[in-house]
Write a protein that binds this DNA or RNA. Structure first.
Lengths: 193, 193
DNA sequence: AACGAAACCTACCGATCTACAGGTAATCGA
DNA sequence: TCGATTACCTGTAGATCGGTAGGTTTCGTT
């Protein structure tokens, strides 16, 4: 029998990598990417820093795995999304501050020169804006207030989601993130039939 | 005659400090606060790292000076602001990517644990939200679309400004920051008389 | 002209960081 | 059962970091 459990070697290895990625998410939330040391991540899964490097050859490789995890995470339906599902997403996010903090910290860092997540976020935003435009079109057609088009509204929708996250992370008591987001959506729904 | 110029010792010292703060703004924009080394800032003003520490005893003291500079910067009128002045501000910002990048990077880092700018941003947002609520009330009274109050709209306004900055910094070609901001304001102006 | 302070500098310390090299024990496939 | 692979470990290199100690030059003041 392999090890004490019923896992194959390959499955165990992937399990280990997933553990490490989870730990990395936590540490990045706490200290950012630049502030996250491999040693801190390793310690959290009971490894030495060099042991961790066996699974991810460089720090950047670990970051890539973290970003891929996120891609997989919100690669949900896409166009099939509805606006009320966005509300649910924001409500769900409000219950998971650690994840939000990780990617808010990464987004902030990513605008600096040569940051390894910069390209990721740039492309992600392009994708998300298109996706949101599709959602808006599905929900409201082209009848948005003030002659706004879904194309032009999408950046606003994304900006509201991100911007609210920072305010909420810094002061959750003072900012009702889901409530504010619903307010914004109601603003869009005004000119509807 | 003191030195080659007509400055007093005190004025020269303040001039030097201002130089250093300017350099720090640049370096933080490029590498974030954690990634900004004192040596890099010092080099930019022709000092050694230890020479810089003569003017600012610790790295954190330098950061405080950077944040104070910003406070002074946007401690403009306040309630006297009008919505169209906000548009001008966004247009002005669109011409100064370095400054925006500095504070977007700092904001991102500030959500991490124990970051020296965390308290600053938390308090700043409280202040700015109140300020924006006052502006909205002055401009639109309480007649905002969908029964929204200025109090509840202010976080959205701030979120839009911040969120657009990230999208714009990452991909200025694809995001018309001032245009999008005007779109948002038009959304608010809809239910007006 | 003498004194004191400001504005630097060189030298250095201890900590921390990513990464490489190489060893070892456990495990798996043939 | 044996050879290879996996999953670690210790040791260490090489760089960089913020900060301290202490000297020296430059300058304003008296």
């Amino acid at each position: 029998m392999p090890y004490g459990d019923g896992m194959s070697a390959r499955a165990r290895s992937e399990e280990r990598r997933a553990e490490i990625v989870r730990a990395a998410l936590e540490v990045i939330a706490e200290r950012g990417y630049r502030g996250a040391s491999l040693a801190a991540v390793a310690e959290r899964v009971g490894l030495t820093q060099q042991g961790l490097l066996h699974h991810f050859p460089t720090k950047e490789a670990l970051l890539v795995a973290v970003l891929e995890e996120r891609d997989q995470w919100d690669a949900v339906p896409d166009t099939r999304w509805r606006v009320d599902l966005l509300t649910s997403l924001v409500e769900y996010n409000a219950m998971r501050p650690a994840i939000i903090q990780t990617f808010s910290a990464l987004l902030g860092e990513s605008v600096t020169e040569g940051h390894p997540a910069r390209e990721y976020f740039t492309e992600r935003y392009t994708r998300v804006r298109e996706s949101m435009a599709a959602v808006l079109r599905t929900e409201y057609g082209d009848r948005l207030p003030n002659g706004l088009t879904p194309q032009r509204t999408a950046p606003l929708l994304v900006a509201v989601m991100d911007g609210l996250q920072y305010q909420w992370l810094l002061d959750p008591e003072s900012v009702d993130m889901p409530g504010a987001f619903r307010d914004f959506l109601r603003l869009l729904g005004e000119g509807r039939d």
